[in-house]
Nucleic acid binder design. Sequence first.
RNA 1: GCGGAUGUGGCGAAACUGGCAGACGCGCCGGACUUAGAAUCCGGUGGGCAACCUUGCAGGUUCAAAUCCUGUCAUCCGCACCA
Length: 807
Amino acid sequence: MDMKTVESKWQQRWEKTKENNFNRKNMDNKYYVLEMFSYPSGAKLHVGHWYNYGPSDTFARFKKMQGYDVFQPMGFDAFGLPAENYAIKTGIHPKDSTEQNIATMEKQLKAMGAMFDWSAEVKTCEEDYYKWTQWMFLKLYEKGLAYRKEAPVNWCPSCNTVLANEQVQEGCCERCGTPVVKKDLTQWFFKITDYAEELLSGLDTLDWPEKTKLMQRNWIGKSVGCEIEFECESGDKFKVFTTRCDTIYGVSYVVLAPEHPLVKKLVSDEQRAAVEEYIDKTAHTDEIERLSSSREKTGVFIGHYAINPVNGKKVPIYAADYVLYSYGTGAVMGVPAHDERDFAFAKKYGLPVTKVIENKNGETVLPFTEDGICVNSLQFDGRFGEEARTEIANYLTKIGKGERKVNYRLRDWLVSRQRYWGAPIPVVHCPKCGVVPVPVKDLPVKLPYNVEFKPDGKSPLAKSDEFMHTKCPHCGGDALRDPDTLDTFVCSSWYYLRYPDAHNAKEPFDPEIVNKMLPVDKYIGGAEHACMHLLYARFFTKALRDMGYLNFDEPFKSLVHQGVILGPDGNRMSKSKGNVISPDEYVSVYGSDVFRMYLMFGFSYTEGGPWSDDGIKSVAKFLDRTERLILKIKDEKGKETGMNAAEKELDYVRNNTIRQITRDVEVFSFNTAVARLMEFVNALYKYDGLENKNIPFLKACAKDLNLLLAPFAPHFAEELWEACGGKYSIFDQKYPVCNESALVREETEYAVQVNSKIKGKLMIAKDMKREDIEEFVLKSDLVKPLVEGKAVKKFIVVPGRLVNIIL
RNA sequence: GCGGAUGUGGCGAAACUGGCAGACGCGCCGGACUUAGAAUCCGGUGGGCAACCUUGCAGGUUCAAAUCCUGUCAUCCGCACCA
């Protein structure tokens, strides 16, 4: 088959007849298949795109043939750093390069032949999209979920610019290698932490890979503990957070994060110089180093003391950078006997180590960090673990010195970017009115084209007078726009809501439509987004639900991660390693169907693996073989001759194939599904080679094969379908359904074991009773000589599989 | 350091809930067709002469273990002082 001609023939026909477009009349029967949209950084599709989209399209087509109205859209996540960096390097404007790349990728995606509904295409860099991204920002602001505060950002002192986290590699600037420092800037944040608990508990309702759910759980990092108030000699009070309030009688010092305001307030005159030096040093240590657990702990005594609320003991206060200001209260009680970090710190600074927990099962080796029995803890002595914590927490509450408290590691989402190629933040800074949101009627705040985007320490937009100067929407006076743009993850946090209503000019989406079309039934994309995109999108969905726009809690009911296709050398593909495989070369030789089918057959979908050429020829061979077979059978003539043994055997393979493929595709086990197709073709060849054939039956089997193959090799199957006189389109036909009765065999082959060792096989009739099986087996020629004269101790029958005789 | 995953022929990989390890394919070997090659078709293919051995390694549970348990090694991924 000349695949080039065949592919373009059907791609045109599908487009002309709108075969792939979703019809809104069918929303009640919808099935929403979504692949993570493309980032148009390079011009061409790489193997990763194909691996994501090809097999997923097979899944979508399979669902369609099962009778669902499948909605499978595609679009582009078009804002972002790579386009801007490319612009800085080449001088080509991000808008121009992005549009160019999108045009090329659209063409290639269409040539892939996936059933994308292009009428719902979305590009995040276009005004009619980012207008609504800005709308999202305003809604979150209105709800109190967007706020501004001063926060440390990554700053490259050489490039004189802020860097995104992704641009910091091992503490250094990705471009020039200069160590990155922290710098405080006023930034916009989204209050994702408001949803920490629901983002955590909602995971239990999702059909997602366990690993991904676990990563989100760890990222959210819930910990249940206690906040305890310490009073200083000065009368100032501060709180510490601990999950181990049962160790409170072992406190030998307390630590404040160096940024904690009380440090500067309480420091004694003798210690002032040392403490200030320490604070300064901390500020200049980059975060990666500071957060390394292997680093030796440092700190400084501030010359002041605090009182332990349970026993009145006076303990020294230290400032130390192993305590993070951003987590909990920014203060910690030091219990060296029962915490490894405190233990190391206490050893270094000569602080006392007091044992207050005893190991229940043996010797107590300090630091002992497991649950144990309280000692040296006054009235709580003898209490164990959780019981001790409850009683001590209750006691602290009673004396007004503490309370139960839940903390999360999750931080609010910093969305400001001092970058050009993104959606401008829709607020105005007015000297009189302060921060004023841009009214919805004035959206979009357009991103100007003529901007100097070379980095020099300021947001590129800040240098555009045309952009910056505006009137305050509130008082009408002169005001300035916000010069920052939104993180691109904001754009991708809601695109799945735009697709079903992609051309709505009045609102981001019609809730009525979206509530019917969502949630996404199957979402497919890389695992690298576990704690970013997949978390942000969930947050957006929940926030929009609480604003009354959505009536569901989770955007992606079911999620699959494809694996990674590595270079032939087993490394990740990269230009510098020279191991990049270009799909185009293979597609032009073998065609898109063969390429996609090889991706399905050669790898376990969720694993991926190193690329190899060897298998691709075998898939081409298989399709050739199938084509010859189907065309030959089409022209064969003969009468119905009934279902004899050979027909029953073929019918068994046929129905077993249907059953297995249906199961396999459902769970993205494409490699085994293709293997089943191959088995079916082999069985058909075998039957076709017989003298006496039931031709009408054979034709029916060949028709099933054609249908079964359609989702895997869409152009190829459509062409054969037409050649055999089938009605257009094959994708509007019903996928074959397994006839269970064909799978019931009169006799089943049993494995026969004696003393658990395989001795041979026996055919046993399907309705034979247990006792009869025993008698039959023991008297068989196979077993008789092996058991003669020995006593049968046990006779095990696993129905349909094996018997095991224990002597 | 913590958490998770993976480890099966020469290669890519299969194996439901503990029940015949290696489906399907590549490669290789042999044969048919052919002047010859390509293509195609048929047969064989874990190791060992054999009894037997074989799912990273060492134990254990079981009539039965790739699968469950304990320990151990290797590789990959995620988080990394979160009190």
